[in-house]
Every structure is written in structure tokens, then in C-alpha cells.
Design a protein around this nucleic acid. Structure first.
Length: 498
RNA sequence: GCGCUUCUAGCUCAAUAGGCAGAGCAACUGACUCUUAAUCAGUGGGUUCCGGGUUCGAUUCCCGGGGAGCGCACCA
């Protein structure tokens, strides 16, 4: 120890003061031993110690010696007795105490000089309770297991939104909810995989890099393959490959993976987002609606133990019961006061849209219907609701309705006003599918940047015969949003930032 | 892509109707053997996002650029 201010050498001069100081501590540790040991003799965890001694009396010595490690989150040093709070990756915290008589003068001094907030610390000692009754480890020996160079942010203010997203690892250290969301997401995935496994589905992975993007209407990200000297697209959906799998006899198949769409980002949209798609041979859109409801309800039960999930703002998202099913055309007619069917003249739709002040980009009959439906009905849908039977011209991959003319067997699931999932009775007739693609190509030629391209290889697969099939797709990030009430950037651990 | 708002110490934020840039936590020096956002005394720390302009003087006003947030558009 010295009485002088630490001397900052030249190359450290442009570093922030606190980093320069910690660099010097790191040098000292390296000179006298190690600042980043490869391993330490851990005998227990913070969680295990806390679980073993849930309610000891005040000032108890257990005689139980443990070696535990964690990150230093708080320090309270008195002259000859030091306290620190160690935090495990789980977020569990325990107090450790270093006393002069246990560790000796030189090690106590070194502790005070070298250990900073944020450092990873290993201690071994006896499990005790303090005179105030707090479960603690009375340290015999200690070792820094990883010296931190940067200071943690102060733990008494909320981090700014930008700092949280750009430094998620720091956010995870200091904010319980951030850790919790990661855990919830993982558990939801486990639950959904279990639901699929129980129904004998196989999980597969299909191409992310595609020569033709298809399966959805969206603008793609483009890239280039040097090896093949060709333009490639990041997939906007896995649909056309999963259907190939069904043609191949993988009768129950699902994939959970990323899609990429080169479009706007906001509270509910991210350029890359996790998507679940599932296909079941000999199923239809009713089968898939039942599957989707089960996936979500099982996940809520497995993760939260209830179907009435409490959200961030305290509201309850009630996922219980059999979810409502409404018809798109009927609900629109009722809400708008105008009878609207697939036969309604497009001029009538246009007039209504104009009256409501809606501007519609690429006016087709179905586009008007969907836009009008969103305008009149969507925001009122709080309870989970399947919206059934969509227009044909906006749903090129869906089978015509078995009895209602002019609509297809498609539903969208809305929860709390957000589109959560979609389900089809899949179009498997290769001839009609080709006609639908040709329509899309015409739209593309007319300037709709989201129209689908004609995928000959996919059509060839259909020509080999696809069984009657139900399909569904669900945004995983969206699901996490409706289970937590958070924005999409809080459900994604590392959202895109420029 | 368009509009509005915003960017100050490691973190969270003040301030300047254009005139030496402040606080809390964190850091540093010292005291303290039961603290728990420890306490007490003292100290240091800033390219005020970047570039230009106006001005005796710009962190503040103006112009351009960048990042972020919100709204709109597109989309799930």
C-alpha cells in the first residue's frame, strides 16, 4: 500500500480513470499469481448453500466448509471485517465475510486493495449466520477468478434502454427480470418441443439461404454466394421446404428457427425473428388450431403454472378455456354495418375504405377485406380468438374452403390484439398452386415488392403428391411478448442494433 | 422511408434565458471487527455524440452527419 495516488502510465492516460486503476490491479494479480485462474475448487453453489440452510438462527456456526464462487455485487468494508455480496449466474446472492483473524492482515489488505465490484470471486470458508442473522460464508481463503476491467453500472438506478440493449450481458448481471426473460423463453421452447414430441412430430432444420424466397409475402435480405456465384436470399419463411418434407413422408414435422424480413422494426417487429412452423399430414386448419391452442396453453402451464398469465404492467392475459372462432367476413360485416362477402363488388369495398380514410397500396379484393377487417375488428380482439376463412387472393398457399365459396381455409390467431399465429389447410393441388403463383408473378410485375416468386422446384415436389395437410406458423418472439407483456426487443436477448 | 424528441463523468441524471459544467452511485486516500444502497473525513475524474457556422466567447443558437426513443408507413 502507498500513500500516494496511483501513478497512471502513459498508455493508460487516455483510458477512463476507473479502467486504468483496474488494469493496474490486474497487473498486480498477474505478477503475484493469477487474475484469471483456469479452475478453482468449488464444492457448492450459492443456490445449494441457501437451499441447505433456509432459516438458521442468528449467529450460528454450522461447521460446514464450502468453496463457492460468484460475482461481487456489493462491498461493505469496515477496518478489520469486510462484507461482500456474491451473485451466482442464477441471480442467487449470498453474503461473504472476511475477518482479520480468519484471513490474516496481508490477505485482508490485498482483498481491500484488489477486489472491485463486478469481480468474480472464489471463497472457501464456513457457512455461518451473522450477528444480524444473515446466512454468510466466513472466509478462510479467497481468490479472484476473473478480474474485471470495466466497472458495473450503479445498481440503484435503472439502466437506460439503449445501454440495456447494447450491453445485454451487463443487463443480465444487474437486472433480475432480464435473466428471468431468458429463462422463460428457454422453458417455453422446452414446453413446445415436448408438446410436439408427445404428438410424434419430428423437428427438422431447413435452409436459411435460399435461391428463391417463398412461403410468405415480405421483402427479403439479399446476399451472394461466392462458391456458386449466385444471388441468395435469407429465408422469409421455411414453409416451402417443410412442405417438401411432407411430400417426402415426414408426416408430422416442425421447425423452430429464424426468419429474416427486410422491413420496418418497431415494438412488435424485428428484422430477424424466431418462427415456429408445423405441418401435419391428414390434418387440416381445425387440427392446427387445436394444436396451436395446446402449444400455448401447455407452455403457460409449464412455465407459469396458470393460464391466467400476469404481464409486465399487471394486466392478466387470460388464455384459459376453448378459444373463440369468428369468421372474417361475418365479423367484418357486423362491425362495419355493411354486408361484405367474397362476392361484394370491389367498388363497394373501395368506397368503404375511402370513407374510413384507409389507403390501400395494391388494391385487390382480398386486400381491401383484410385491411377493412383490421380497421373494424382487430383492435377489439382481446381474448385469444381464431379469425377464420380468409380471402383467396391474399392467401396463395391455402386450399379453397371445403364448402364456402370464395374463401380459403385459413385462420389467424389474435391474442390481445396482436396476430400471434396462422394456420392453413394446405393447398396441395399442384395445378391450382401453379395458377396461384402465376397470379403472384403478375402482381410482382405490377410492382408489388412483396408478391411471391414462382418456385418451380417446389411445384415439382407438389407434383409428386402431397397428402392433405394442415399447417401452422407462430412467431416465437410474439408468443413471449404475449406471455410477458414485454416489447419484442426485450424478448430477444441480443436484438439488432446499429 | 417520413415526422417529432433526444445524446453531458464508468452508470443514472442536473445545469447554462451564450459567460469557470454539477449531484448521487462508482473510483481514489484515510478511519472503522456485524455491515447489507454500510458510515465518516478528504481527493480526483468531462473532446457536453461528430463536423462546420454565427459570436469576444457555443455544451447551449443555426446547418450538416451519426446513434437512440416515440409516432406514421410497410410487415408478423
Amino acid at each position: 500500500m502507498t500513500d500516494e495516488q496511483p501513478v497512471v502510465n502513459e498508455e493508460e492516460q487516455d483510458l477512463p480513470e476507473q479502467i486504468a486503476v483496474r488494469m493496474q490491479k490486474r497487473e498486480r494479480l498477474l505478477a503475484s499469481g493469477d487474475a484469471y485462474p483456469v479452475s478453482v475448487e468449488i464444492t457448492s453453489t450459492i443456490d445449494a448453500v441457501k437451499a441447505k440452510y433456509p432459516d438458521l438462527d442468528v449467529d450460528v456456526a454450522t461447521g460446514d466448509k464450502v468453496g463457492i464462487a460468484g460475482r461481487v455485487m456489493f462491498q461493505r468494508n469496515t477496518g478489520k471485517l469486510c462484507f461482500a455480496t456474491l451473485q451466482a449466474g442464477s441471480g442467487a446472492r449470498i453474503q461473504v465475510m472476511l475477518s482479520l483473524d480468519k484471513v490474516g492482515e496481508s490477505r485482508l489488505e490485498e482483498y481491500k486493495e484488489l477486489v472491485d465490484l463486478g469481480d468474480h470471486l472464489f471463497v472457501s470458508g464456513e457457512v455461518i449466520t451473522s450477528k444480524r442473522g444473515e446466512l454468510s460464508v466466513l472466509v478462510d481463503s479467497w481468490q479472484i477468478t476473473s478480474k474485471t476491467i470495466r466497472p458495473l453500472p450503479n445498481l440503484h438506478n435503472e439502466l437506460g434502454e439503449e445501454y440495456r440493449v447494447r450491453h445485454r450481458y451487463v443487463d443480465l448481471i444487474v437486472r433480475d427480470r432480464a435473466r428471468e426473460v431468458v429463462q422463460i423463453r428457454s422453458k417455453v421452447m422446452q414446453s413446445m418441443r415436448k408438446t410436439f414430441t408427445d404428438r410424434t412430430y419430428l423437428e427438422v432444420e431447413t435452409p436459411m439461404l435460399q435461391t428463391i424466397h417463398g412461403g410468405a409475402s415480405a421483402r427479403p435480405f439479399k446476399t451472394h454466394s461466392n462458391a456458386f456465384d449466385t444471388e441468395l436470399f435469407l429465408r422469409i419463411a421455411p414453409e416451402l421446404f417443410l412442405k417438401r418434407a411432407v411430400v417426402g413422408g415426414i408426416d408430422r414435422v416442425y421447425e423452430i428457427n429464424r426468419n429474416f424480413r427486410n422491413e420496418g422494426a418497431d415494438r412488435t417487429h424485428s428484422p430477424e425473428f424466431a418462427m415456429l412452423e408445423a405441418y401435419e399430414a391428414y390434418g387440416d386448419y381445425n387440427t392446427m388450431a387445436e394444436l396451436t391452442q395446446s402449444l400455448i396453453q401447455n407452455a403457460a402451464m409449464d412455465v407459469f403454472g396458470t393460464l391466467k398469465v400476469e404481464l409486465e404492467n399487471g394486466e392478466i392475459n387470460d388464455l384459459s378455456g376453448q378459444w373463440d372462432r369468428i369468421s372474417m367476413f361475418e365479423s367484418l360485416s357486423k362491425a362495419s354495418g355493411v354486408e361484405i362477402t367474397p362476392e361484394t363488388d370491389i367498388a363497394v369495398l373501395k368506397k368503404l375504405a375511402d370513407k374510413e380514410g384507409l389507403e390501400i397500396d395494391h388494391p385487390q379484393h382480398g386486400k381491401y377485406v383484410e385491411e377493412l377487417w383490421e380497421h373494424f375488428v382487430k383492435s377489439g380482439l382481446v381474448k385469444p380468438t381464431f379469425v377464420m376463412d380468409f380471402p383467396v387472393d391474399t392467401s396463395p398457399l391455402v386450399r379453397n374452403h371445403r364448402s364456402k365459396p370464395g374463401v380459403v381455409e385459413k385462420w389467424d390467431l389474435y391474442i390481445r390484439g396482436y396476430e400471434q399465429a396462422t394456420g392453413y389447410s394446405e393447398l396441395v393441388d399442384p395445378v391450382i398452386q401453379r395458377e396461384r403463383f402465376v397470379e403472384q408473378v403478375k402482381l410482382a410485375a405490377a410492382g408489388d415488392p412483396e408478391a411471391m416468386k414462382l418456385d418451380e422446384e417446389f411445384l415439382k415436389a407438389l407434383e409428386f403428391g402431397m397428402p392433405p395437410t394442415g399447417g401452422m406458423g407462430m412467431g416465437i418472439d410474439r408468443l413471449l411478448m404475449s406471455l410477458t407483456g414485454l416489447g419484442i426487443r426485450e424478448t430477444i436477448m441480443f436484438p439488432l442494433v446499429k
